[in-house]
Design a protein around this nucleic acid. Structure first.
Lengths: 340, 340
DNA sequence: CGAAAGCGTCGAAACGTTTCGACACGCGCC
DNA sequence: GGCGCGTGTCGAAACGTTTCGACGCTTTCG
């Protein structure tokens, strides 16, 4: 029932092609008089071009797909994802693209997501932090869909934007080390995600390089969740020889850890220094505000959009781009208490 | 270059309709033997149905449009929007719909957003907190696009989901009143948004009903932003006869207000009680955790999706649904200090 | 045994665009 | 005056589906 180009053509007794030319300033010229009549009629009838039809014939949808790390309940509540999505959103808006948010990876596995990606509705896709078992990225690549992996594992032949986790982790560790800490623990993220793996590895390396002995019990998995951080900190505090500082693989866990300390009556930072990762907005609301590693996630989102667009246009795009994090020192870290 | 239904048909020497029937279990039956051959070939060729083509002929895209309140830089960083979007996301996922996030209201105004909505890519739309000047909703309604206004102004003939702001505001006010507060201020939101208007009105009503005199200077606009809340609280603290309690129209402003108090050395809650609105996740991370009004935003998002779906299916949907908020009492409110 | 009903298949139309090939016309140029 | 060219227009193909009408074949039933 909405008006189509045909309706205009019929009304004005011209061909559909003429109408199309008039409306688009199309590849062919149209006499000024006809053009005006067409435009008037279009306005009159409330004509709206049907993007589906247009996309089908042009092969372009001006829409970019965004695939969350894995699609589970409440995934949009992750501050990390929110930051990335916001960056992508901003960039997409200014380049006149819309975003399609894929909602159903979970159900029937990667196959299904893929078909929704490859079904013509998007020109390219951004995968946010796909873990190494994410087959969708691989398949997308194989099928030559322009796609970018944002902060995910480096996958052969897939364009990847990553954060120098080594730098970030070293920054945090060195900060604590320079403050005088020697007993430093790590609350790790989900070890099926590349970021978590990198951060853990760098932690271990730093400890070895500086000849700091550490127990396996000082590395606790927190699944990137506040509750995980909470439980992890509890278990650290229960150790006979607890650490004096903890580096968490993200802010959410650091917040959980902070809460655990508060609950156990352990003062932060004087009795326990806590360092986060991500610089989410929540990290400055805690008391004390968290020392954390800033990652330019929003900027990476912006960059990801630009890269996908370039990929679509066939422009060359660097295979891997690494962004450098910086340390934001706030009040959750300080010199350790003297050994009692 | 991707394989189409035609390729399969040609390969197997059957008609395209037969292939379609086989793949969809379509309206017509297909002999088991042919069906199997078709399915095998489809798998072999890596066939993926093209949703665009399908949508064009069926008129359904299984995609729902989401329109943020207004499209500005960083709109996705609003906790309120995040909560709503998350609820919508969850519901869309479980009903096998994808989401299109509209990114470009700003540029060329409501006209443009509308054409991107009406261009056939979405079956229906959810407008998040459209303000009263948002013409897009009206136009959408006029053009009979199934759409839901989530927490926006009540617009004639538009299906609206709203929160009983009166209840929420009264809950907060009564809580403070019962604690003994008489000098209660209000940090209001953006007064072009319905929620802000309602909350302000209820504040005034409550004050009058309880014969509490209040100055105009006790109502300060905070634009729903933390910085606005910060500035607002500063101006309240600078008053000759400052209030003992403040109800903020959202959590972000309450957090700003809290920070202002901390900076001015005003203890919360003993010297100043602060009450928020929204129960965002940040509201429990502050010290002290905020007393706030819980709105079932996520649930409303879910409900919005269901309603749009029903609208699309032509099922009856109630014109207005009101959700009831509840008060979450935490530690940012207490009895007022004795008058010095 | 013949009509009716059901099954399996095909061909074609339809969805709303864009764009290519054709063509008719008028103009300037040699 | 014929030739070529640019301009404005038309018709039709194409994009990849779904689904309807048609048709021939088998089965069922009176």
């Amino acid at each position: 029932m909405p008006t189509s180009i045909k309706d205009i053509a019929k009304l004005l007794n011209v061909s559909v092609s003429t109408v199309s030319y008039a409306i688009n300033g199309g590849p062919r010229t149209v006499s000024p008089e006809v053009k005006e009549r067409v435009l008037d009629a279009a306005r009159e009838l409330g004509y709206r071009p049907n993007r589906l039809a247009k996309s089908m014939v042009t092969g372009r949808s001006r829409t970019i797909g965004v695939v969350p790390p894995e699609i589970v309940e409440d995934v949009l509540l992750s501050p990390y994802l929110q930051l990335a999505l916001n960056g992508i959103f901003n960039a997409a808006g200014s380049s006149h693209h819309d975003l399609i948010l894929f909602t159903r990876l979970a159900g029937s596995g990667h196959e299904e997501v893929l078909s929704t990606i490859l079904d013509g509705r998007v020109d390219g896709a951004i995968f946010i932090a796909p873990n190494s078992t994410n087959r969708a990225v691989l398949l997308a690549k194989e099928l030559r869909i322009p796609c970018i992996s944002l902060a995910g594992s480096e996958i052969d032949g897939v364009h990847t934007l990553s954060v120098a986790n080594e730098t970030g982790m070293k920054l945090a560790m060195k900060h604590l080390f320079d403050l005088g800490h020697r007993k430093i623990a790590h609350i790790a993220g989900r070890l099926d995600m590349q970021d978590a793996i990198d951060r853990l590895r760098t932690y271990s390396e730093f400890m070895s390089e500086n000849r700091l002995s550490y127990h396996d019990s000082w590395v606790v998995k927190g699944q990137f969740h506040p509750d995980g951080g909470f439980a992890a900190m509890k278990s650290l505090l229960a150790l006979p020889n607890p650490p004096t500082a903890v580096v968490c693989a993200n802010d959410d866990m650091a917040i959980g850890a902070l809460r655990a300390c508060q609950e156990m009556g352990v003062n932060v930072p004087s009795e326990m220094s806590i360092c986060g990762f991500d610089q989410t907005s929540a990290s400055e609301l805690t008391i004390p505000p968290l020392t954390t590693v800033f990652q330019p996630i929003a900027e990476m989102g912006r960059y990801a959009v630009q890269s996908v667009l370039d990929l679509i246009d066939g422009k060359p795009v660097p295979r891997h781009v690494t962004f450098e994090p910086t340390l934001v020192v706030r009040s959750s870290t300080t010199v350790p208490m003297k050994e009692s």
